[in-house]
Amino acid sequence: MTETKLLKKSSFESFFKSLQGQGKTIYAPKNNGKKVEFTKVSTFEDIVFDYINSNQSTKDIVFPRYHKVFRYTKEKDQSITLQDFDPNALPETVIIGQRPCDAVGILALKAIFETDNKDLPFTARYDKTTFVTISCNKCDENCFCTSNGFGPGSTNGSDILLTPVQNGDFYAEILTEKGKNLIKANESLFENTAEMDKTPFLVKVEPKFDNTKIQEKLGSLFNHETWVEQSLHCIGCGACAYVCPACACFDILDEDNGRSGFRYKCWDSCGLGNFTLHTSGHNPREVQSQRWRQRIYHKFSYMPKREHVFGCVGCGRCSKVCPVNMNIIEHLQTVNEL
C-alpha cells in the first residue's frame, strides 16, 4: 500500500503550517542551547534538520516519564468520585523528524504494552500520534542499528518516512493509513514520484556484531564472570534506561492528600539498586552485575523470545550519556567472542 511521493524542500514549511492549522501538537527536534531534544514546536524555524540524533528518544511522547492514571476525591459523606484516565483529552500529535531507530523503539514499547492486555494510556497516545520519520544520512561511532536487523532507511514503525535526497528535497514513503490521513489536506505539496533506491542517500552504518549469535550465546552465559567484569565500573544510575527508546520499566505510586489523591506511573530503571528490592529487605538482584546482566538479557534474549522484537534498537544513546562510559557495543562484542 506504500505510496511514494516527493516533498520539495520549499514545501515543508507549508506542510508544517497546515498541520498546525489543523490543531495538531507537533514535536520536532529543537536545539535547547546544549543538546538537540524533541520538544513541542510552534515555529518551523525551530526545527533542526542537520543532526545525528536527539539526546533523548521520542519515547517520552507516547510513554511520558510521569503521568496520572486516575484521580479520586473523597466527599464529606465518605463517598468517592473517581476520575479515570481520559483518552479523549489527548491532543492529535505529530512527531516530525525522529530517526528510524526511534520508530523501531516505539514498536518495542508497543510490543511490551500491548502483548496481552492493552495498556490504555499507551495505546491511546500511540493511536493519536503520527510518526513522520526522517532517514539518517549521518551516524557516529555509537550507532549500531544495522547490527539489530534494520538500518538508517528502515520504514518499521513509521507512518511516513522522509529521506533527504537531491537539492534538500525529501523522498516520502507514505506507509500507513495514519500517514495517508496526515497528508490528505496537503496532497498538492506531495508530488507523485516513482519508487526509488534510497541507498545512495543513506549513511552506511557498519555492523558491530551479530545479534543472532548473541541470542544464542546468552543461552549459556548466565553465570559467566563477564557480567561482573563488565559492570564493575557501572555506578547504577538510571541514565541509560531513561534515554533508551525501548526501555519500558515503570513504577506505579499513589499520592494521597487526604481527601483527594491520584495514582501515577513514572519511569523506573532495572539498573537502580531498589528496583527489585522486596519489602522483606531481600533483593534478588543484589549487586550491579546482576542488574547489568538483566538489562542485556532482557533486551537480547527475553524480548526476542517473548515479544519477537529486540529490546535494543542500536541508537547508542546509552553509551553516549553514560557518566562512566559503559559501552553497550563493547560489551556485546565481548559476549560475541566468548
Binding site: 555506578i235 544510575c237 538510571g238 541514565a239 531513561y242 530503571s269 537502580l272 539498586g273 562512566v324
Partner: peptide, 20 residues
C-alpha cells in the same frame, strides 16, 4: 524542569554513599 530523575548525579557522587 529538564531533570529526568535518573539519579546519575547521586550515583556518580562519591559522597552519596548512603545505602538507601
Amino acid at each position: 524542569s529538564k531533570c529526568i530523575k535518573c539519579y546519575a548525579c547521586r550515583s556518580s557522587c562519591p559522597m552519596c554513599y548512603c545505602n538507601r
